[in-house]
Amino acid sequence: MNSTVTTGTETSVWGGGNQPLGASYGKLMMWFFLVSDALTFSGFLAAYGFSRFKFIETWPIADEVFTHVPFFHGNYPMIYVAFMTFILIMSSVTMVLAVDAGHKMKKNAVIWYMFATVIGGIIFVGSQAWEWGTFIKGDHGALETKGGRILQFVKADTGERASLADFAASIPGERIIHERKNGLWFFQEPALTSVSLEEVVQGFKANSNILIRTELINEEGEKTVLDRKSSLAKLAEATQVVEGANLIHNEYGSRLFADFFFFITGFHGFHVFSGVVLNIVIFFNVIMGTYERRGHYEMVEKVGLYWHFVDLVWVFVFTFFYLV
């Protein structure tokens, strides 16, 4: 911290060497970066709010989208994200303990706390990758209409979601693959969904227990379920089967939801990843005794600021993506 040497008299402001904010150059620059990065994330979240308010009546309900927990079957909304949040806060705690140990020049304590922080970060990034995987793979499957609306299915007697595979008819068919010997040009073929639109439509007509659930949120805050007659009418508008989510199609509802999910959690995940890399660099520097020789552990503090910032952003992402 005392890397600057005061020159001139104490009363001379112009002599340089002043620290009007009481923070070193490096720390101040880290704060500048964090403030600008905070504004970037705020821009993303505000854009998310914009799209959500624009489609407030049809926006997907997060509780119904993120319901999975690794190694467990069933419907556990929010549990896993809460766990991820806790992991990140926990690794923030070990980071702040590392900074604290650094102030007291306890090298071994800093090493162990940094190690724990890195592990926490890796668990978090892994969890996020798993969340993405689950989201991309999809859950129950849905149909998309010509206007890009999503039609999901529920069982009439229990009100539970029905997967496409639960009721789709089986219509044997053969896909003829275009081969090079049959023509000069290679035509790219889209991936087949596990059931075809025709199979879903036939299965729906044969199974009177299945109803269509639209994107529209009713006054109870739930998605509107159509009766059998309007379900059949709605079914005629379907143009394709959607399984899982990507940037263009999203079985959970509004495609913008998937776009923002990938963009915001992806950008945050990238921050966590770079935080882990920075932490590892600092971790090895601590082991090699760089900061011991330097006489202070301010680098740990600076990288710690970044790490806490990542945690801070996640607190907001958690609220606006999963809770509100």
Partner: peptide, 27 residues
């Protein structure tokens, strides 16, 4: 309620983990 609780959390992360509490008020 969620938003206010989030701001409370953000306050304590910034004030105690990022030790803004110990910095100068100008910063």
């Amino acid at each position: 309620v969620f938003i206010i609780l989030t701001l409370v959390k953000a306050y304590y992360i910034a004030w105690d983990f990022m030790h803004l509490r110990d910095e100068r008020s100008s910063l």
